[in-house]
Design a protein around this nucleic acid. Structure first.
Lengths: 195, 195
DNA sequence: TAGTATACTGAATAGTCATTCATTTTATTA
DNA sequence: TAATAAAATGAATGACTATTCAGTATACTA
């Protein structure tokens, strides 16, 4: 499998894939379309990726990597669990809201098949949830969060709210920035519905 | 477009589609596979559905219809917003947890394309969210829910948590019943993370 | 029972595209 | 500069499948 040394061409292919897949959907996007936009020949794609599906996987890995590494660093910049949660919410909404094409991919196109979702949730999403659940656990120790929480459960619930906001933003055609919801989300997560 | 008077055959086709699509995914499921399982000829499918995609739409409508009608009836059986919320959470998790094949479809396969999700969210999901947001609004009037909530926002957050629990259950290979999470979900939604 | 309408069948069609690989171009080495 | 290796090309292949429709079977009517 030949490839140029810097990741130039691989990156170009992934960038092209984001645009084409966001615009036409994974199944309507042909390998030829991605190749054309990336400025390479069809066959070149197969020097960098085993098959079409691997492009989608790689796309996800690249995006999720940012969530994890930035997530960690944001969390490390704060001391209290409440502030850490605030940072995670802001980061999540900001990262998704930054690039609509990528958001379409992560909120819609990546959820195509059971097989696919399975892989995703096992690998990187699990790592992301672990970061969140650590924050919850810390909050419980600190005494700022309720003692009767299950951190794993709570991390999923938190992710669920963030994910729904992201999906809603992708589907809405309004132009409101996604990160403008950060405060509302944090307040809801911390305080719940009850007075 | 010919068809037999009772919905027998149409129902058989939809039932077959649920099984095949849950098992192989929408794109790996051929019309022939659905026809075979339903015990009809390939062409018969097209007497009942315009095309393959319409099968998926119909599947969704049938399933979502239950959420909405049962949701309303559950809500009507309670008086306080807190109890209504409890019912919605229980119903949602029970309905999803009742049929794993259908759950796979609603949590994974139905989210195929932006176009598709768009249609879904506009139509029936919107109606479902409206039911939830009415409950939130009632809770605010009653004084049992915080006054600074936006009911629309809150309904999305609630749906997000329910949806994530459902997806997690579909992807997890454990056998724990989904509705066993109902209390944890309700507590989380009502009380949030903070003490 | 003959005639007509309705329902169903399944083989043939028509188009699509992921993937391959023989060939060409570009880079590296001696 | 010649020889060799690495990268890249893109036309051709081969496999797949949604949809159609001419024909058959079943139900209904007079």
């Amino acid at each position: 499998m030949a490839r140029n040394s810097d990741g130039t061409k691989r990156t170009a292919i992934l960038d092209a894939a984001v645009v084409e897949i966001a615009r036409h959907g994974y199944h309507q996007t042909t390998v030829a379309m991605i190749a054309r936009r990336a400025g390479v020949a069809d066959g070149t794609i197969y020097l960098y990726f085993r098959n079409k599906e691997e492009i989608l996987f790689s796309l996800f890995e690249r995006a999720m990597g940012r969530f994890i590494s930035e997530g960690r660093s944001q969390v490390d910049q704060e001391t209290t669990a409440i502030e850490k949660l605030r940072r995670i919410v802001e980061l999540h909404l900001t990262l998704v809201g930054k690039d609509r094409d990528l958001a379409i991919i992560s909120q819609v196109e990546l959820r195509h098949s059971l097989h696919f979702m399975d892989q995703l949730s096992r690998s990187q999403v699990g790592e992301y949830l672990a970061i969140i659940s650590q924050v919850v656990a810390q909050g419980m120790e600190e005494g700022s969060f309720r003692k009767d929480l299950d951190p794993i459960f709570a991390s999923k619930a938190i992710f669920g709210v963030l994910d729904e906001m992201a999906t809603d933003w992708v589907l809405s055609h309004r132009n409101k920035r996604l990160e403008s919801q950060a405060k509302a989300v944090t307040d809801f997560l911390l305080g719940g519905l009850s007075v």
